[in-house]
C-alpha cells in the first residue's frame, strides 16, 4: 500500500544512475594518464596511487583542502551561533516587522551568488579581509544564516511552550534556560542545521574563488586552475575530485537518521 509496484527495480536503476558517474571518477583516479587516454577500460588495469600521492605531498594541493575546511567550519559556527536566538524569537514571539524580516532573510537565501561576487570583492578588499578564510566564511553567511534560521525555527516550534514557562517559573534566567534546556532539546535540529551549513558552504565555488587569491584558496579553485594550466592531467583531476567527495560522505553518515527530516527543514 505504501509504495509502488516495481519499486526495487526503480530504486536500483536510480541508484545506479547516481553511482555510475561517481564510479567513473574513482575509476579514473586510480588509472595512469596513459591508460586513461589510450584505452577504454571499465576498471584500472594498472592501478596506481601516483595521483593521490602527488596531492598528499604537494603543499599547493593539500593546503587547498585545509583552506576549504577552515572557512566551512568557521561559517558553520557563525551561522549556528547567530541563528539560534533568532530562531527562538521567530518561533515564540511576535514583534514589529517579524514577517517582513523573515521574508527578507529568506530572499537572501535565494539571492544569486553571481550578483554578490563583485561587490563582495570590493567590500572585503576594503576592510582587509580579502584572501582570508574569514572573508569566505562571512560571505557564505548570506545564504547559510537564513537557512539555519529557517531550519532551527522549525525545530524550536516543535518544543512545547510549556517547557519554557515551567523553566522560567523554576527561576531559570533566559541565558541559562537557553543553554541548559532548549539547546539539548533541539540538539538533533542543531546537528541538521550544521550539516546544511557545512554542505552549502562546502559545495559553493563562485564566491570562494572570487574572495581568495593565494593564501586561502579553496581546493575547488585549485582544481579549476590546474585543468587550464596543465592541460590534460585527467588522473590528478579525478583524484582531487574524489577527495572532495569524502568529507561530504563522512558527514552524511553521521546524520543519516535525521537526513529526511532535515531536508524538510524541520517542518514535517
Amino acid at each position: 500500500m505504501h509504495s509502488i509496484p516495481g519499486r526495487r527495480l526503480i530504486m536500483g536503476l536510480f541508484l545506479i544512475f547516481l553511482l555510475l558517474p561517481i564510479y567513473w571518477l574513482v575509476n579514473m583516479s586510480f588509472k595512469t594518464n596513459s591508460e586513461i587516454v589510450s584505452t577504454m577500460t571499465l576498471w584500472p588495469h594498472t592501478p596506481t596511487l601516483q595521483h593521490y600521492k602527488r596531492i598528499f605531498t604537494d603543499e599547493s594541493w593539500y593546503s587547498g583542502y585545509i583552506n576549504s575546511l577552515e572557512y566551512v567550519v568557521l561559517n558553520t559556527i557563525i551561522s549556528i551561533a547567530v541563528a539560534l536566538p533568532a530562531a527562538y524569537a521567530f518561533s515564540r514571539y511576535r514583534f514589529l516587522g517579524d514577517k517582513h524580516l523573515f521574508f527578507w532573510l529568506l530572499s537572501n537565501r535565494m539571492a544569486p551568488a553571481a550578483v554578490y561576487a563583485l561587490p563582495f570583492f570590493n567590500l572585503y578588499s576594503a576592510i582587509g579581509l580579502f584572501d582570508t578564510p574569514w572573508a569566505v566564511a562571512l560571505a557564505h553567511c548570506i545564504f547559510n544564516v537564513p537557512l539555519a534560521v529557517w531550519i532551527l525555527e522549525g525545530f524550536v516550534s516543535g518544543v512545547p511552550r510549556e517547557i519554557d514557562e515551567t523553566a522560567f517559573l523554576d527561576g531559570y534566567s533566559f541565558p541559562r534556560f537557553f543553554i541548559k534546556i532548549l539547546v539539548p532539546l533541539i540538539a538533533s535540529g542543531i546537528g541538521v542545521a550544521a550539516f546544511f551549513c557545512f554542505m552549502f558552504s562546502w559545495v559553493e565555488l563562485l564566491l570562494a574563488r572570487t574572495l581568495t587569491s593565494v593564501q586561502a584558496k579553496p581546493i575547488a579553485a585549485i582544481m579549476t586552475r590546474t585543468v587550464s594550466a596543465a592541460g590534460m592531467d585527467w588522473g590528478l583531476l579525478a583524484a582531487a575530485g574524489v577527495l572532495t567527495i569524502i568529507p561530504g560522505a563522512l558527514v552524511i553518515w553521521f546524520v543519516r537518521n535525521y537526513i529526511a527530516r532535515g531536508f524538510a527543514l524541520g517542518r514535517v
Partner: peptide, 12 residues
C-alpha cells in the same frame, strides 16, 4: 547514496 550528489562541490 541519495544524499551523496548533494554534497559534492558544484565544480566537481
Amino acid at each position: 547514496v541519495l544524499a551523496l550528489p548533494l554534497l559534492i562541490p558544484w565544480n566537481v
